[in-house]
């Protein structure tokens, strides 16, 4: 058997090869130092990644979600989400640094700061800015994913896969 493609090694480490294929690949690894090293390297990385635990059990979105469902239809609802979103994005790097500093990386997620939303809305962009910046055509899409319902698995037209 010839040397394994790296993607096969990825599938092997991920435990998703069919039994017969896995047997065949493992036979090759036993005889090929290059592929065996590639496998061990990836398995080591895979294991190392397991050090990052995220525990969101303290957070319950149920009330937040159901409150939004029961409130009267608000045409600016999507805009509100994205304005909040945009405000939040500015804090990403700081949040990572802070989470790391506080050791949150290994533990529980923190419940959302209830005061945050008001602060974000204070600096929310205008509706015109939002329409331009966020491509609000998306808001009228009939699908939650932005793609036709029914789980079409083909890449959407123009979808890039790099980098």
């Amino acid at each position: 058997m010839s040397c394994q493609r790296e993607s096969v090694i990825v599938r092997l480490v991920g435990g998703e090869l069919a039994e017969a294929e896995e047997r065949e690949v493992r036979l090759h690894l036993a005889a090929c130092t290059t592929c065996a090293e590639a496998f061990e390297g990836l398995r080591g990385t895979w294991d190392e990644l397991g050090a990052w635990n995220v525990d969101p059990t303290e957070i319950d979105l149920t009330d937040r979600v159901l409150a939004r469902v029961t409130e009267p239809e608000d045409p600016t609802r999507h805009q509100q989400f994205f304005s909040t979103y945009r405000g939040a994005s500015l804090r990403v790097a700081a949040s990572i640094a802070l989470a790391a500093g506080l050791g949150i990386a290994t533990g529980a997620m923190v419940p959302r700061d209830p005061g945050l939303k008001a602060a974000q809305f204070a600096s929310a962009p205008s509706p015109v800015e939002l329409v331009e910046a966020l491509g609000l055509a998306e808001l009228s899409t009939p699908s939650a994913t932005g793609l036709p319902l029914g789980f079409e698995t083909e890449a959407p037209e123009g979808a890039e896969v790099g980098p």
Binding site: P56, A88, R91, A93, I96, M109
Partner: peptide, 10 residues
Amino acid sequence: TGDHALAQDI
């Protein structure tokens, strides 16, 4: 995202 508040919004 690396952001707790953003993760909850999403």
